[in-house]
Design a binder for these strands. Structure first.
Length: 318
DNA sequence: AAACAGTTCAACCGCCTCCGA
DNA sequence: TTCGGAGGCGGTTGAACTGTT
């Protein structure tokens, strides 16, 4: 009993492909294109399972494949995409022209995992390995405990590197002079809380502010990732929204403004409709077009921009 | 030179989703 | 609405390769 096999296994070859088999497959697809994989082996004169043919073509024979080592830029892109998408290798591969999901998966398991461990980052969660973060009003200290090594000097260096990376991720905040990494704390969902306004430990600062403290949740700026995210908050919008928030607070909280920031755009576009009062569906992170949007998107408010992407917004009171 | 250990990556397996009948 | 086939995906395997002793 059990599952019916995808093809007759007793009459199919398995294991490594021969040059002759490769040539047959290439010639057939060149002549007829990619079609029904189940019937392809017979038509091409191959004693292979259709799935095996598909895999061989997609992962190895396709002419547009990029062979060779991954560049540092590709490394960082994979890391950032993985932090957003998880083990969705096909989605990650779709963002790296010429690379296959299988190749990226293998590369992740053999190279990048190790690379992240060396940096003291958990490859699955993209958080520091067994780290504890202590935030005070004047400084942030991070201690990384790595059970596989006791080389403290290396860890100190790495801590510093991680802190620099952290700063880089939030560089978009630095346009606002009062922001420093020291008034930022981490949250459970990997976002950060920034205290805006209010008193600081310096008397000078406290005099210059209204004394009202507001906590704002923000998400990292994955500057190496260009997901062509068509929605989100450009840096200036974030800053101006914070200023607005402070003003509102100073006016004795006449008005309550809720900022729900789902994501930040790495490539702010003036054409993109941006509002901090609206939430956006995740499927638009991936640049889906109208017909590909999920059903909930289709029920939302919609605009079409110059790049012919449909943007969907769900009013907060919906 | 040989044996062994570690690494890489192509290929396989089985589950899941989609779509048409 | 249900069912089955086909394609797609992620996890795993194992042969080939490379480095070390």
């Amino acid at each position: 009993m059990g599952r019916s096999p995808c093809c007759e296994k007793e009459h199919t070859n398995k294991g490594a492909w021969t040059k002759e088999e490769d040539e047959r497959l290439i010639n057939y697809i060149k002549a007829h294109g990619e079609g029904c994989w189940r019937s392809l082996p017979k038509a091409a004169g191959l004693l292979r399972c259709g799935k095996s043919c598909r895999l061989r073509w997609i992962n190895y024979l396709r002419p547009d494949l990029k062979r060779g080592n991954f560049s540092d830029e590709e490394d960082e892109l994979i890391i950032n995409l993985h932090s957003l998408l998880g083990n969705k290798w096909s989605l990650i591969a779709a963002r790296l022209p010429g690379r296959t999901d299988n190749e990226i998966k293998n590369y992740w398991n053999t190279h990048i995992k190790r690379k992240l461990f060396i940096r003291g980052i958990d490859p699955q969660t993209h958080r520091p390995l067994k780290s504890t973060t202590t935030t005070t009003s004047s400084s942030t200290t991070t201690t990384i405990t790595n059970s596989t090594t006791n080389k403290n000097t290396k860890l100190d260096t790495k801590r510093s590197t991680d802190f620099q990376l952290e700063e880089q991720n939030y560089s978009f905040l630095q346009v606002q002079p009062e922001f420093t990494m020291s008034n930022m704390t981490k949250t459970e969902n990997n976002s950060r809380i920034i205290k805006v306004g209010g008193s600081s430990d310096s008397a000078e600062d406290s005099n210059s502010s209204s004394g009202v403290t507001t906590e704002l949740e923000v998400y990292p700026d994955h500057k190496l990732v260009n997901l062509e995210l068509s929605i989100g908050l450009p840096c200036q919008s974030l800053v101006s929204s914070i200023n607005n928030l402070k003003q509102a607070k100073q006016q004795e909280q006449e008005e309550v403004v809720t900022h729900q920031l789902f994501e930040t755009s790495t490539t702010p576009t003036s054409s993109a409709p941006v509002s901090v009062h609206k939430a956006a569906c995740l499927c638009y992170k991936l640049g889906f077009k109208n017909s590909q949007a999920c059903s909930s998107c289709n029920a939302m408010e919609k605009t079409v921009t110059a790049d012919n992407l449909h943007r969907f917004y769900r009013p907060l009171d919906a």
